[in-house]
Simulated scan of single mutants.
Amino acid sequence: MNAGSTPARVRAAGAVLWRRDDAGTVEVAVVHRPHYGDWSLPKGKLDAGETTPVAAAREVAEETGFDAVLGRFLTRVEYEVRTRGGQAPKTVDYFGAEAVGGHFVPNHEVDRLRWLSPAAAESVLDYPADRGVLREFLALPARLTTLLLVRHAKAGKRDEWNGDDDLRPLSDAGLRQAEAVRELVRPFRPGPVFAAPRLRCVQTVHGVAEELGTDVQHEQLLSEEGYWPEPETGIARLLGIVAEGGTPLVCSQGGVIPDVVARLAERDGVPLPSTKNGTVASKKGSVWLLSFHPGSGWEGRQPEQPPTLAAADYFASPLPDPVTTTH
């Protein structure tokens, strides 16, 4: 490292791994690391080219042996660490993660794991930052409904395409972005898969649907032409998709996504990050991770109580890229 240069940031990701006991009470996992002699939350450094969701899920599996489904983004912790070149900044991005299988086997990184009530876990964790992450996890219900809202990947310039614009395909760069989207969303276990009926939207999430052995369902109300005549109808359809369950993945267009996210956030009081010109971010190939309180009494497309937005987190394009979050 040259004199006066800024040391490279160390990036890591982790999770509050949780489950319910036989009585239905939430328990969280804390791990003991023999090398440091501490109790902490599972976490670790990103591998080259990894996004934080992929790294968080991988680290949970490697350190705890549990298979987990990621939920909402919790927080980012920042501190200084010692490196060969001196001190360097480190960031750790944390997610909620529900254990859905597996079992703990002691390994060289973690020799003990304990499932504890949140209160007991907070008393065991050695670091104030970890206790802060746990409190952020407890600020909302452990299980929310996740919606992954994707803007289609790059499809070349519209004025250079001579055919029907609905049939404009992804460019080579767009195909790489689509693959990056597939890798990024996998830890959230997406499905079902929806897209505006534009080839570029369908292509962006086709790999996800193919991996699930299902088809991409067309949603005209979430295309630019279908949404803008009656935006409230499009919002109602999106909430209907949320209420139908699963972890829906929806691919739409840049003329729709900012308005959808802004309307939901304003309705439910969730602040959002914005670009310099005051618009909601929505780059090609980007993903909004939207977490909802589930609704109730759903009949057809008219709920007694529709789902409400609880948190919104944005993964910018090109991927991988740091996450910008707000709650």
Rank of each mutant, 00 (worst) to 15 (best):
Trp161Glu: 10
Arg112Asp: 06
Thr146Phe: 03
Tyr127Ala: 11
Asp164Leu: 14
Ala97Tyr: 06
Ala155Asn: 15
His152Asn: 06
Asp111Thr: 08
His108Lys: 15
Ala129Lys: 12
Trp115Phe: 09
Glu98Thr: 08
Trp161Arg: 13
Phe137Cys: 01
Leu144Ala: 10
Tyr127His: 15
Leu147Cys: 00
Arg143Phe: 02
Leu149Thr: 09
Glu98Ser: 06
Leu116Cys: 12
Gly156His: 15
Pro141Thr: 08
Leu140Lys: 14
Ala99Glu: 01
Ala153Trp: 11
Lys157Ser: 12
Asp111Phe: 06
Thr146Lys: 07
Gly101Gln: 04
Leu148Met: 13
Arg135Gln: 13
Leu116Met: 14
Ala153Gly: 12
Asp111Tyr: 07
Asp111His: 09
Ser117Thr: 04
Glu160Trp: 06
Arg135Asn: 08
His103Phe: 11
Ala139Glu: 13
Ala155Val: 09
Arg151Pro: 02
Ser117Phe: 03
Phe137Ile: 05
Asp165Gly: 10
Pro128Asn: 07
Ala97Ile: 01
Pro106Asp: 10
Leu113Asp: 02
Val133Asn: 02
His152Pro: 01
Gly163Tyr: 04
Arg143Met: 01
Asp159His: 15
Arg143Trp: 01
Asn162Thr: 13
Gly163Met: 03
Asn107Ile: 11
Lys157Trp: 10
Asn107Leu: 07
Leu144Gln: 13
Val100Thr: 08
Val133Ser: 02
Trp115Pro: 11
Glu160Val: 10
Leu140Trp: 12
Leu144Pro: 07
Ser117Glu: 04
Leu116Ser: 12
Leu149Ile: 12
Arg135Gly: 05
Gly101Ala: 09
Asp130Leu: 05
Glu160His: 07
Arg112Thr: 05
Asp159Val: 13
Asp111Ile: 02
His152Gln: 06
Leu113Met: 09
Ala129Cys: 09
Glu122Ala: 04
Leu138His: 05
Ala121Met: 04
Glu98Gln: 11
Leu147Gln: 00
Ala121Val: 02
Gly163Trp: 01
Ser117Asn: 03
Leu138Asp: 09
Gly132His: 07
Lys157Asp: 06
Asp164Phe: 12
Leu144Glu: 12
Glu122Gln: 08
Glu136Val: 13
Asn162Arg: 15
Ala99Ile: 03
Gly156Lys: 14
Glu109Asp: 14
Asp159Ile: 12
Asp165Ile: 15
Leu116Trp: 06
Asp164Ile: 11
Glu122Ser: 03
Leu144Val: 08
Val110Asp: 00
Leu125Thr: 04
Gly96Thr: 08
Phe137Asp: 00
Leu134Arg: 00
Pro118Phe: 03
His152Gly: 04
Val105His: 15
Leu125Asp: 05
Lys157Val: 09
Leu113Pro: 05
Asn107Phe: 07
Ala121Asp: 01
Val110His: 00
Leu113Ala: 04
Asn107Met: 08
Ala142Arg: 00
Glu160Ile: 08
Trp115Ser: 07
Arg112Ala: 07
